[in-house]
Design a protein around this nucleic acid. Sequence first.
DNA 1: CTTAGCACTCGGGAATATGGAGTGCTAAAA
DNA 2: TTTTAGCACTCCATATTCCCGAGTGCTAAG
Lengths: 355, 355
Amino acid sequence: MELPERKKRILKAIVESYINTAEPVGSKTLVNSFDTPISSATIRNEMSELEELGYLEKPHVSAGRIPSYAAYRLYVNELMERHRVAGDELEAMRLMMQAKMREMDNIMVSASKVLGEMTQHTTVSMISHTGGRRVKKCELIDVDGGFTYAVVLVTDSEVKNKMLRLSQPVEPATAAVLSTAINLALSERRLEYLLPSVQQSMGGSSAVYQMTSDILDFIRATEAGGKPEVYIDGAARLLDNREYQDTQRARELLEYFSDRSRVSELLVGEDGPNLVNVRIGPELQDPSMRDASLVFTSYQIDQNTRGIVGIIAPARMDYADVYAKLIAFTQAISGVTGQGMKRLKDAGESDERRD
Amino acid sequence: MELPERKKRILKAIVESYINTAEPVGSKTLVNSFDTPISSATIRNEMSELEELGYLEKPHVSAGRIPSYAAYRLYVNELMERHRVAGDELEAMRLMMQAKMREMDNIMVSASKVLGEMTQHTTVSMISHTGGRRVKKCELIDVDGGFTYAVVLVTDSEVKNKMLRLSQPVEPATAAVLSTAINLALSERRLEYLLPSVQQSMGGSSAVYQMTSDILDFIRATEAGGKPEVYIDGAARLLDNREYQDTQRARELLEYFSDRSRVSELLVGEDGPNLVNVRIGPELQDPSMRDASLVFTSYQIDQNTRGIVGIIAPARMDYADVYAKLIAFTQAISGVTGQGMKRLKDAGESDERRD
DNA sequence: CTTAGCACTCGGGAATATGGAGTGCTAAAA
DNA sequence: TTTTAGCACTCCATATTCCCGAGTGCTAAG
């Protein structure tokens, strides 16, 4: 059941006023918000109906109304005006991204910082590996003292490494042979035969066997995905928001942020590629985030890697602004990822997105 | 000029009371703190003198006294009782460290988390490379698409890596030759001849020349030190402290923490090896930290690498407790760094430390 | 030098007004 | 039927006042 036009207009005005002021909105303050003159009494009637419909709440009887989560949802879906950021601002973003990329060498961090700078909110970044990762190559480098360093190349542009500590040293020559064997096994994707064959040919040297086993574990762990990499920037900005003046709530959220794996769970389940996703308060299913919203989108890094970047702020956030800035962000970032974006560009990049 | 015994006892009692309660301490509450009976009037006289000496302050006339920074300094230097944590607690710490190390694979993070768990404060970790880093080995790994991945081994146990992006692909065979040449140059420490010699022998292939130059830059940058790695854990715990109930102050500190390089500056200038360093409020020279203290120490990771780990909390923190726990921490960590601590142990580890 | 006694200060919590923003309802107007 | 003016009512927020009590400094006696 569609909401009548005037109710929508009133609800929109309430949401926007509340976003700006964080104060409950009364009927009188809304009178001036419309071109067609309308009395406060009429607005009151409408507001009372909107409350029955579940879009408004009152903190107490004489305090005006505040939007419910359902209202934010409706606002995001239907009411808000989707504007674009001005061209020069977009250009500024692009330059900033370029600068940060040079400085940081980590796209996750750069993305968070740029977006945080633009929106003045807490931002979260994640790298997501789609289509399963495949280890393509494994190099063993021996270090003094019997340690071996294993470097593993995953699909295109990602590298993982790990220091393997052995109880006994392994000869460099042996390591070289082992390395060849591993890479052969990798290219043929027959890892399961590696361990028995090593045991056979190496004459049961326990150190080599152990090392091979460790390396295989590492490869398997890498292919399985491992922990998601999550980066959060500007957490302190939470405290700028009126809703987190209460230190207890702020603490709960900050505490929550320190558990990266839980945060990463918020970011799963995108609505679709190239969309801006909005998750409002209770929709996040997480008690710590009950009064906060998360707005995020993703961008391609290379064929198998996507970056996810988003904003965490109180449910009373300027969705229209954040929305526009996220779209601008993905446009800006496609200009600077350079080589990594090669394929995407060849395929014809698209700035257009819908929700 | 040494403080008379009784003044010391009173000051100690005041500091400890204030540490516990965060409330200004009055003369009457102190009466029961001494075995030799002493009247509140006498204490008042003493307190008033301690105030003149700069050890106490009054928030207002009828509110008791609070310790000044000088008082904390005196407390740490002379007054506080240095106890050790119980053996079983030490053992618990060791186990926890072991578990975290397995889970984390990053000693900095593990150290911070364990210490944070023990003290319930915000902790900071840093890795410090003493005696200059030396690149010992450099491996080149080619990746599809003409990129080359450079892995650089620094001194003993540290590894740096970087993806070098070339405009033109380099043949794997060529890369192998180059790799050998680089490692030879590294072992002879004659990097400066590498570039000309490559140009000569490789017949001026611009791709190879470019790559060599990039690699040399990378090696030099690595040896120069690069950015310090700083990790902060449990920042949210700041908000548990009464002094940071004021969101503005809390925000300032949290903001400050996000600039890792500034935080790292707090940790330079140790009093000496194997000492617990205490920096109180204004001593930190940083306006953001004006009412906080930093207590830190360092532990050996390998011959050229030291970890620094510390606690950031309000100046009104339990120095004796934190002090003991830091000492316990270094004892505990020496039990789990394992191979990396080999040399240290051979040299005979020492638990004893003075200040 | 210590201590009891006492006047004095002052913050902060409780109790108490009071203003005003906002609502819901009713009845008249459109 | 919808809109609007009017009005009684609610209740939060703020200011004001009051007063208790913890604490001090000073003085004078022990």
